[in-house]
């Protein structure tokens, strides 16, 4: 029993799950039971996969010991590129593929520069954040492309999958991808290398893990997921805006950190990142529903991030310090 408790203390996801449940209950009461109404849940579920997919990629990259500030810009660049290509007559699926390939390339450049010149990824991706944002405006030519509703099979990504109109296909895409990345991290040798690379780089290098390549792969996955999420959002709104996803990068980092991922690398889980992303969405929406001045939203996220990190560190210390019978 005590052992279970110790385990729970050391699992940072647990505290944030508890907080999530509490917040949902609180908002449900404050909003006069509107928060969990079908209409509102539909709204939250529409937006959630988009933020959460970005958070999944960022979490993976942070576990690997790196950082990506360019996800918000890639979030806008991918759909913009795709839309411009579609308008120019390129078939939809080819345009999607080319858009994602561009994201992969950006991830590669982020990783390659970071590794090759041995500079902090914070700087590389800060530069890329500006460059990708600028490219988004440039490819659009200043005028957002317009795609006629129904001209592209966007239902595959954003159509409702149930009769009640509650769950969109994007939720399924997101769950599928999140499960896949979780398995990649937990059950494959690649995942082992990611944790070793982020956990203690000299050991990973001494054991012959190609940590540079592992990091570049994580950068690429992160960028592709951000671009994919941006595409889903653009298709859902059916508008392609150059300002899409601004501020997304820090929300994604906040989500990862709230879910227990360490900025130092090596520690964290995809499920933690998901819970973090859900928390952010719940707070955003819950504040509106409870008629709290929504200008406090960023304050709440900021405070939660600090609180989560301090709390997790404290819990982990407590958990470790707690003596348990280790024999038998």
């Amino acid at each position: 029993m005590k052992r279970l408790f110790k385990l729970a203390l050391q699992k940072p996801e647990l505290a944030s799950t508890l907080l999530l449940v509490l917040l949902i209950l609180m908002f449900q009461i404050l909003s006069g039971a509107v928060f969990l109404s079908i209409d509102n849940v539909r709204g939250v579920l529409g937006l959630l996969p988009e933020t959460a997919l970005v958070a999944v990629g960022v979490t993976l990259l942070m576990i690997c010991g790196e950082f990506d500030l360019s996800v918000g810009s890639v979030f806008a660049l991918m759909p913009m590129t795709m839309a411009v290509l579609v308008v120019a007559g390129v078939p939809f699926w080819l345009a999607v593929f080319l858009g994602l390939a561009l994201c992969a390339f950006i991830g590669f450049v982020n990783g390659w520069i970071t590794i090759k010149f041995d500079i902090p990824s914070f700087i590389t991706t800060l530069g890329m954040m500006f460059m990708a944002r600028s490219m988004t405006v440039v490819v659009s030519g200043g005028f957002p492309p317009r795609i006629k509703p129904g001209a592209v099979p966007s239902w595959i990504f954003t159509g409702f999958v149930d009769d009640g109109g509650l769950v969109r296909a994007s939720v399924l895409w997101f769950v599928g991808i999140a499960v896949l990345i979780s398995l990649l991290l937990a059950k494959t040798n690649f995942g082992n290398w990611v944790r070793a690379t982020g956990g203690f780089l000299p050991a990973a290098a001494a054991m012959g893990i190609p940590s540079g390549k592992v990091k570049i792969a994580c950068f690429m996955i992160c960028s592709v997921l951000a671009g994919f999420a941006g595409m889903i959002q653009s298709l859902r709104l059916n508008s392609f805006l150059p300002a899409l996803g601004e501020g997304m990068e820090l929300q994604a980092v906040a989500a990862a950190v709230i879910g227990g991922t360490s900025l130092m690398g090596g520690v964290g889980s995809i499920i933690g990142g998901l819970i973090g992303a859900t928390l952010i969405r719940v707070i955003d929406n819950g504040m509106v529903m409870s008629q709290i001045d929504s200008n406090w939203f960023k304050f709440a996220i900021g405070a939660l991030t600090i609180f989560a990190v301090v709390g997790n560190a404290w819990l982990r210390r407590r958990g470790r310090a707690m003596q348990v019978e280790t024999d038998k």
Partner: peptide, 14 residues
């Protein structure tokens, strides 16, 4: 060794 990984994972790193 990577301190944050388990013994069995450390034994087989790489």
């Amino acid at each position: 060794m990577v301190p944050l990984m388990t013994i069995s994972r450390n034994v087989f790193i790489g």
